[in-house]
Design a protein around this nucleic acid. Structure first.
Lengths: 263, 263
DNA sequence: TCAAAAGTGTTTCCCATACACCCATGC
DNA sequence: GCATGGGTGTATGGGAAACACTTTTGA
């Protein structure tokens, strides 16, 4: 019998207890459930990047796809499954993992009916390292670009187009980018991309925004919005400290409060 | 063997075909997948209402819950399952059905691990009728209210509090209302609530907004926003026609374009 | 002393809000 | 004619965008 708060509550009758003990979880045919992760980051050259996996087995063998895998029933939530898969394939922990959408077209996987819960992960700039690939998969970080046919994914020597991706993963990636772009206008998602830094300058944050939005921003106005939305609200604090460079910039720190708002 | 575009494409090798034919969909233990629907509408007295089902069987027998049910594997997407369940329990078709969030805590159902994809349905004002209940369930339309403990649900003679609902359904309902409130500020969701009307006056739409937002709006400013966002953009057209009442109001019509934007 | 990046100040314009006021109709 | 809701006009304030200008440093 399963262990749960409901069962331990002691509010249930003998009749209900008997029902739950004799319940057959397999009375209906079930679809499979997977977690797929759109893993986004920014590289040292300030380009938006994504982690893709080259599939070692069928179906779509040899095609690039989103990292992900099957949910282990009774043991984890889909969010935990996404975190587990991401850790196994990148070694990254303590990462932003936000649910994007659930895809459930019966034909999206040729093996069987697979319901896929997609997540967006935001990895701090420069921290994403790829694990050595084994037989089952090979991972690579791709720079996201655009051409007439839609998205492109580039890494040294290799160019992949969105039409080449496995399953409906191109659709998922496009939705993730679109959602992230609209979210950073009013949510602190972008801070995840420099969460590894003890302190940061306004211009570093601005570059993150420019990379995500794919457009140049006015520094003066960006600063005003930053001060108003984060410093004046106490979610970021100014340090009495400056960095290097031409004219050293004031450095800032995220507070506990901001970390909570980011989850 | 499954039928899908991928298989029919003719791009697959004999080896891959053999793999797919011998693939065992049950090699991993699977969770169940359900679609739950937060069915919202506005009644004749302009109150925000929700459809709830009284559970006839265990678990949570006798408790009120969201309508919903198990996904039929290999046959339908979760969205189709949500539409099917809603139709079976209310007879309503042609309804707004928007995916809300996927809940997957392993303990949220005492029977087994159930992954639930929640949807929000918006039913045109005054069209929601409840089907006669059988042994398995009994449906009722509740007026949504608020008190110190959170949401309340009222119908003739009955008052249900959010803490009394089955499963984690109170959490789902709160998320649905929150999301709807933020969405109607920039999306045409509210038009679903008078989609049954051939023509409508601005004040009718305003009442829908006030009901959803639970606050009074300024008619003059509401009109300006309506004209700018919908009439000037050609998504709603003014008819040369007026309704009844004190001073008959100009009537408007939704266009095909708006219907598309609403999906 | 000059270039580059940090940081400040100002001007302009748009648009949301508030609210005063006029209009059409039923009773 | 007067109450009721429909509809128009206008004044105001806040904030976003554009951009000119100053400051601080390294070379």
């Amino acid at each position: 019998m399963r262990d749960s708060e409901y069962l331990r509550s002691g509010q249930i009758s003998a009749e209900e207890k008997a029902f739950l003990e004799s319940y057959d979880p397999d009375r209906y045919k079930k679809p499979s459930v997977t977690a797929d992760v759109v893993t986004l980051t920014v590289n040292a050259s300030d380009e938006l990047c994504i982690l893709l996996i080259k599939r070692g087995g069928y179906p779509y063998r040899g095609k690039w796809a989103l990292p992900g895998g099957f949910l282990m029933a009774d043991e984890e939530s889909v969010t935990q499954a996404a975190a587990r898969e991401l850790f196994e394939e990148t070694g990254v922990k303590d990462v932003s993992l936000r649910q994007l959408y659930t895809f459930s077209d019966p034909d999206r996987d040729p093996r069987m009916h697979v319901v896929s819960v997609a997540y967006t992960a935001l990895i701090p700039k420069g921290t994403l390292k790829v694990q050595a690939g084994d037989d089952a998969w090979e991972a690579e970080i791709f720079i996201i670009g655009y051409d007439v046919d839609g998205l492109t994914f580039q890494t040294e020597g290799t160019m992949v187009r969105e039409a080449d991706l496995a399953f409906d993963h191109a659709k998922i990636i496009k939705m993730a980018i679109k959602r992230l772009r609209s979210r950073i206008k009013y949510e602190p998602d972008a801070f995840w991309l420099l969460k590894n830094k003890k302190e940061f300058a306004i211009s570093e944050l601005k570059v993150i925004y420019e990379t995500i939005l794919n457009e140049k921003l006015d520094l003066a106005n960006f600063r005003k919005a930053f001060l108003r939305d984060y410093v004046d609200t106490g979610r970021v604090v100014a340090l009495n400290k400056k960095g290097g460079g031409r004219r050293p910039a004031m450095l800032y720190n995220m507070t506990e409060e901001l970390q909570e708002d980011m989850d």
